[in-house]
């Protein structure tokens, strides 16, 4: 099996147990796997920002004053330089199959954080323009790793890239989401990166306004 990231061939070590039970082949080689940094230790219980003590961070206190639509965000990985390269190749270059790098970790982090299966997954949509450019929605690809029902309940109106904006710009922007399918049950929004939380808050506000009782978020990376 060749590593999904570096394409080096992995030669599994032969030990006594190999004789009895064939080993599960790993998608990623050990050298590459060690570069991913899974979020651990104390973090803000609302937005998963790494903290010294597990208390609500200053950003989330500000969020609570403005909008309380999004109850909580759970992220899988830390945003290190390695992750930047991986996301760039996956999302911007469009190497679709790289979602396989995260799949196992997505499933285990998700089941740990959301033990109940009573929710719909709503991936954050791309604008039509952006979708045509990339050919796939990375948020949907993440949601498809999980075995909860997926509803594409939102559509996105404007098309400016969040990653090209400053924090102040992001905070000032207007809600780009429209609910095309109201959901009356708990929802878990799915996206690739949580940076300021602006996008997810907008999506949550839109859903709550249309009668959704509880909105949480699951993101791959905590920026």
């Amino acid at each position: 099996m060749h590593c999904l990231w570096c394409d080096e061939e992995q030669v599994p070590e032969v030990v006594w147990t190999t004789v009895l039970a064939p080993r599960k082949e790993k998608v990623v080689c050990e050298a590459c796997a060690s570069q991913f940094s899974v979020l651990q230790g104390s973090q803000c219980p609302r937005c998963a920002r790494p903290m010294e003590k597990a208390e609500i961070c200053s950003d989330c206190i500000r969020w609570q004053e403005q909008s309380a639509a999004l109850k909580r965000n759970v992220s899988v990985y830390e945003y290190n330089n390695w992750m930047k390269d991986v996301i760039a190749k996956w999302k911007y270059r469009g190497d679709y199959v790289l979602v396989g790098l995260f799949k196992d970790q997505i499933v285990s982090s998700f089941t740990h954080a959301f033990p109940s299966k009573e929710a719909f997954l709503v991936p954050i949509p791309l604008s039509e323009e952006r979708l045509a450019e990339r050919g796939f929605n990375q948020a949907l690809a993440i949601a498809e790793c999980l075995d909860l029902p997926i509803e594409q309940a939102l559509s996105r109106i404007n098309s400016e890239k969040q990653s090209k904006k400053t924090r102040a710009d992001r905070m000032r922007s207007t809600n780009p989401f429209q609910v095309i399918l109201p959901i009356k049950q708990p929802v878990i929004l799915v996206d690739d990166i949580y940076t300021t939380g602006r996008t997810l808050q907008f999506a949550a506000e839109a859903l709550v306004r249309e009668g959704c009782p509880r909105v949480e978020a699951f993101t791959l990376v905590r920026g």
């Binding site: 199959v97 979708l131 045509a132």
Partner: peptide
Amino acid sequence: VPWPCGCGQTCHYCRSCI
């Protein structure tokens, strides 16, 4: 590798020069 391409079909794409 195959992938659900934006064109609506299941296309293949080249990872080598992506």
